[in-house]
Design a protein around this nucleic acid. Structure first.
Lengths: 143, 143
DNA sequence: ACAAATTAAATTGTTTACAATTTAATTTTA
DNA sequence: TAAAATTAAATTGTAAACAATTTAATTTGT
């Protein structure tokens, strides 16, 4: 194999790998804060979406979280079983399901209010670096 | 809830989310190149490690990939079953397992040689931006 | 109007991840 | 040196992710 191809296959020359590993690390860093609330990371970001705007369709949740219904539907069912939300079939279009928070679901927001600040403080980046990273990541997501 | 806490809980103000979503997007972007080789992304990066240095211990693979044995052991068993590697218990310390590529495992490297270049070209970042991102991600991984 | 195409969720099946535990081997230490 | 502690892998159980398919409802095109 040519030298350049050989180099290109080294783990340290991949961009995908630190992205993949850093994502797992950050998601894992949420666990100590989420576990006391009985939430997983995916459930947490689902709550973020619903706290921001209640009554979204499943498809709108999927779009915002960039996840498909095969991932989101079981999550919603679990949170519904725990009493945090209700899934209501739309009357105008029976294909659609609207997701509505219960009082318990809204109350969870208060309990989670400190998490972003705690996570920020455990991240080894300055605010400028965080902003830079944020913008580069959204370039990937949009491009 | 105070305004600042409310804002901090918005999805668009999270750094974790674009990290998590971009990682999934990039991993997914490998699929069309890996599927013809019968590999998943995780299997691919495991190969990257072994192509770089053959005969590593399971623990060394786990360290390099930042994954635990619960993830890596089943991966290794699958690749062993496909004939790409052998798992050999160390004679000097029977707790350790050494992972050795077969001819088929080494041959896979030739078939994967073009993947890094193809992935690079489908990424919406300039080389400078990629370098910046790379460095920020490793700050997270090391910090 | 009505068959064909499209759409929204849900379902099925496979592959990660990871926490927690277990097993077996080795090292430490009392 | 024998018990205790540590270590390396493997195992078990749970929760994502996602491709591919299915089901049911709606929309389109003729």
């Amino acid at each position: 194999m040519e030298h350049d191809k050989d180099d290109a296959l080294k783990l340290e020359n991949q961009l995908c790998f630190p992205l993949y590993a850093a994502a797992r690390k950050i998601v894992g860093a949420y666990t100590p804060y989420l576990k006391p609330l009985g939430l997983t990371y995916t459930q947490y970001i689902l709550f973020l979406v619903l706290w921001e705007r209640d009554g979204l369709l499943v498809s709108e949740i999927c779009e915002r979280l960039m996840l498909d219904s095969g991932t989101v539907t079981p999550l919603l069912k679990k949170l519904e079983a725990k009493g945090y939300l209700r899934r209501e079939r739309s009357e105008s279009d029976e294909r659609c399901v609207r997701v509505v928070l219960t009082d318990e679901g809204r109350a969870m927001k208060e309990r989670a209010g400190d998490i972003p600040a705690k996570m920020c403080s455990c991240m080894a980046l300055s605010p400028e670096q965080a902003k830079q990273l944020y913008e580069l990541l959204y370039m990937i997501l949009k491009g």
